[in-house]
Structures are given as structure tokens and as C-alpha cells.
């Protein structure tokens, strides 16, 4: 695929993604904060529905040789620490990177004036720090296996089935409790 077609495809997929994020309500600060305050579970419902449908689909596509993917390795130092830092920022800002882009579209001026500039500064600061941590902290506590089925030593379809059941039970519980 030519570079131009690839970029056009990215734009089109992004437009669908952004349309869906707004229709789901997650381009709103109030919806994201209500999730982090555990008062409303819209964010989790969207993410886990996406993961559920996605997991089954991409593993079937991979098993039939239509796509290939290989998760990157990681570590507690990288994904655990970085993830916690992200989480603190997530709650202060009330948006994550993708929903920020969507929030600009409905007129979130706090994102335009502070969140987005801050995020660019944060990325740049990490780029500055990167040479000091890439050989040390980012490798601390490396995961022994890159995928959960390998890590847990179970068949991937077993895990997909178990995950499906767990997510469906979670949804039933959320609907019963009205969250």
C-alpha cells in the first residue's frame, strides 16, 4: 500500500474511532471522572466491550493467517511505573490522549489551553529523559513472557473463553447494580 493510501486509511479509521468515542460519551470530562470516581462505568463498559469483541476477532484472524501481531515485551519498571504516572495525570486532566483529541471537537477549552500543551511538554520531557532510563529503569522487572497465555501457561482459546465469561458476568453485575 502506498504511503498516501496508508495515511488516508489512518484518517478514515480515526474518524470512525472519534465518532464512536463521542457517541459513547467518553469525550466528556464528566463521564471519565465519574468512572475514576467509580460512580458510573461507561468507560469500562466501552473498553471491555471493545476488548471482548476485539480479542475474539483478532485471534481468529491470526489463527487463520490473515493478520499477524506480536505484543512487545515490557516490564514492571516500564508499564507499571509509567502506567501509574499516566493514571495520576489521567485523573488530574480528566482525559486520555485519544479522548483529548475528541474533546477539542466539542469545545473543551481546558484541553486546548492547558491539557494539550501539557501533554506535548510531557512527551518531550520523556524524550529528554529517555537515554537515562532505557537501559536501566525501563528494563527493571522484565516480564518473562510477552503474552498472558504464555505467562499463565494455558491455551489462548481457554483464556479468551474465560475472559469472555468474566466480562459478561461483569456486565450483568453492572446492569443489576445500575452502575
Amino acid at each position: 500500500m502506498s504511503n498516501r493510501k496508508q495515511l488516508a486509511a489512518g484518517l478514515l479509521f480515526g474518524m470512525i474511532f472519534g465518532f464512536l468515542l463521542h457517541k459513547g460519551g467518553v469525550t466528556r470530562y464528566d463521564v471519565i471522572m465519574a468512572q475514576l470516581l467509580l460512580r458510573d462505568f461507561t468507560v469500562l463498559k466501552i473498553m471491555m466491550s471493545a476488548v471482548l469483541v476485539g480479542t475474539v476477532g483478532v485471534h481468529l484472524l491470526k489463527a487463520t493467517g490473515r493478520v499477524s501481531f506480536a505484543p512487545k515485551s515490557g516490564s514492571w519498571g516500564q508499564n507499571g511505573i509509567g502506567g501509574l504516572v499516566f493514571g495520576v495525570g489521567f485523573a488530574l486532566l480528566g482525559y486520555c490522549p485519544g479522548t483529548m483529541a475528541g474533546a477539542l471537537a466539542h469545545g473543551a477549552l481546558d484541553v486546548l489551553l492547558a491539557g494539550l500543551p501539557g501533554m506535548l511538554i510531557g512527551c518531550w520531557l520523556f524524550a529528554v529523559l529517555y537515554p537515562r532510563v532505557r537501559g536501566s529503569l525501563l528494563l527493571r522487572g522484565e516480564f518473562s513472557r510477552t503474552t498472558l497465555p504464555e505467562l499463565l501457561g494455558i491455551n489462548q482459546w481457554m483464556l479468551v473463553s474465560g475472559l469472555t465469561m468474566a466480562v459478561l458476568l461483569l456486565f450483568i453485575w453492572l446492569e443489576k447494580t445500575g452502575l
Binding site: Q78, V85, F86, V88, G89, A91, C96, G115, P117, G118
Partner: peptide, 16 residues
């Protein structure tokens, strides 16, 4: 929001 943005950017790149 600015502080949150900085941490989101920094943390996202740290966590890859």
C-alpha cells in the same frame, strides 16, 4: 489540567 497533561504525556511515553 496542565499538570495532568504533562503527566499523561510523560507517563504514556514511559509506559509505551
Amino acid at each position: 489540567a496542565m499538570l495532568g497533561g504533562v503527566l499523561v504525556g510523560f507517563g504514556a511515553r514511559w509506559a509505551d
